[in-house]
Design a protein around this nucleic acid. Structure first.
Lengths: 194, 194, 194, 194
DNA sequence: AATGAATGAGGGTTCATTCAT
DNA sequence: AATGAATGAACCCTCATTCAT
């Protein structure tokens, strides 16, 4: 059953979101998943691989979405808003995963190849490729797209962090619902009064 | 001698920046500082407190700067640029500290009171207070200043991260030199072609 | 099918010879045998019993040979040489088994009754009984036959070890081919120049 | 205190001799030594290194003895007898160490450099160098000194094994007291009646 | 103030064995 | 008879912290 792998992933999300990756023990994860410790190791080679898998699942969602985005006829800012909306919607739907995404990203440099790093580097790269196209078409002004894409990704992370660690569920949803629009507006037209 | 505390702080910065807080051991820090392990505990109550102290030192620099900023006659965007310039200059001067600031911020929720949390929440709050004033004076349009301030802070962190973990020292300095202007321009006027 | 038991035994010989009993896992043995792990337990009660069975198979060969030896009309040294030749020939034919015989003999004291112990104690005992007869008939001088038989067995083991763990197959065969004669000559006539 | 390393070594000898290296746990060794588990790791890098150290201590004794032997004016068989007497005396004095020497020698191939391997290969090599000299001087007949030295070493191991695992202490001492002479006589003059 | 040996709770991982299919 | 996912006791090792000197 690959269902069991999913079962363990969800338990791990729950435990890691609550106490953090480092404090999360395999015992706790196993207990939360309702399996024996050994069972975890039938599906993952190590505790670290569980975390990587969590990131991988999210990465795949973004990759798939981004791929479809390529075929859409939105302009670049439209595509960007779409990507952000998708991301914030995912986080709204799965706030615990969101907590992990922003809190454990620092573990990106454990091994050589690594799903965490692919996430935290790959997503900005995707944004950068969008911006590069838009500069080409003249839709946006010339700028350092590497810096801007990373800045944008960092802004998104910060907003997610603010949302998923806010005490009240209501505030969380309000932030996430409005965030994509707010961010795109900010980046698109700036903050100055007109 | 308070000089010894500084000596330990610097050693800790060096070790933590290199291997990360979790992998950094008190043995390594003591060795780097050229003192015995026990000596560390004459100046810090715990390993965690060392990290907090590192954040505290940086926090105080920002607080002092921000306080002086209040007396200046710059407009809000000018103040913002000034704050960012100061931050990027500090990081340029002390890239290892920069690495720590962006990589260990996830430890903000260890204890109840906590210099790390004060840094990662206090700095955005300072930004937010700037923005709130500017909305008041009409210098900038109405917006969700909480979101915007966090987003801005996240963008700064992401840029710092990109810089301090870039392989070449030259690229690092280029990013940091240009970052404040790039970010303020982005936030001020947006990204659209005119 | 008793063929399957043999199939598992051979796989176990292969795996244990390569990595040692302790490092050999039931997974590896099952994989090497091309059966499921559970199947192993239809033929053996435990991993240990597999090793015992390996020793038992070898023990039976020696027992049978020794029994036939009793009906031969060789003198004692002739019988001894014959026994050693048989042993070295077996090892030459099955070097991996030889590796196991000398490397896992230390597991003789796991349970109460135990084929490994029967091997490492029974074979010296058989030699001792030969020697005792020869002392009786005056063919050899009086000596502590217990010590001598164990010493002889130890010498044989050491030679086997040298052979089966030598890098080159050719050297291995040379040692094994000459070993019986060399050992019997040594024990029979000593090492002194005449 | 280097005394603590010795204290741990002795505890390890006691525990490993009783239950075998693999079954010996670091907990048991620490308890036997009267120290905390962590203390063990202040003196040894791993459990394996403790075993290596046990062999190393014994190896050094033999090395030193062998070095002095070089300056003596005994003939080769005299030197050989002397070496064996020394070894059996050591084992008599420290039967538990003897048990380990013969029972854990199979762990010689764990890492690249390894005190166990140095012992089980180095001692036969020393014997071989003795024999090679004696062949040169004509004191003993030409023979395959590699085989003979290994055979001799194996014989010694077997006798030690017989002694240290015999139930009664008295029998053990009798074997060890007579063993060197018995073995040298066997190897020197053979076993045939004259 | 400085030292550093001693501490021991805690955690990730292994793997022989079982048993429902 | 064959299967192989599930099990969980067991074990090695780490490292922040203490405290006697």
């Amino acid at each position: 059953m690959a269902a069991k792998k999913e079962q363990i992933r969800e338990a791990a999300v729950s435990v890691i979101a609550e106490v953090g990756y480092h404090t999360a023990t395999t015992d706790k994860i196993a207990a939360e998943a309702g399996v024996a410790i050994g069972t975890i190791y039938n599906y993952f080679r190590s505790k670290e691989e569980i975390l990587e898998y969590i990131y991988l699942v999210e990465l795949e969602k973004r990759r798939k979405f981004f791929k479809n985005l390529g075929t859409s006829d939105l302009d670049v800012l439209g595509k960007l808003r779409s990507l952000l909306q998708m991301h914030f919607a995912e986080v709204k739907n799965n706030p615990t995963v969101g907590q992990i995404l922003v809190r454990e990203r620092h573990l990106a440099d454990k091994g050589p190849e690594n799903a965490i790093r692919e996430f935290v580097q790959g997503v900005p790269l995707a944004i950068q490729s969008l911006l590069d196209q838009a500069v080409e078409t003249g839709e946006i002004r010339k700028c350092d797209t590497k810096i801007v894409s990373h800045a944008l990704f960092g802004a998104v992370e910060a907003v997610v962090r603010t949302a998923v660690f806010s005490e009240e569920g209501q505030e969380r949803d309000e932030i996430l619902d409005g965030a994509a629009g707010e961010l795109v507006a900010l980046v698109a037209d700036g903050i100055k009064a007109k």
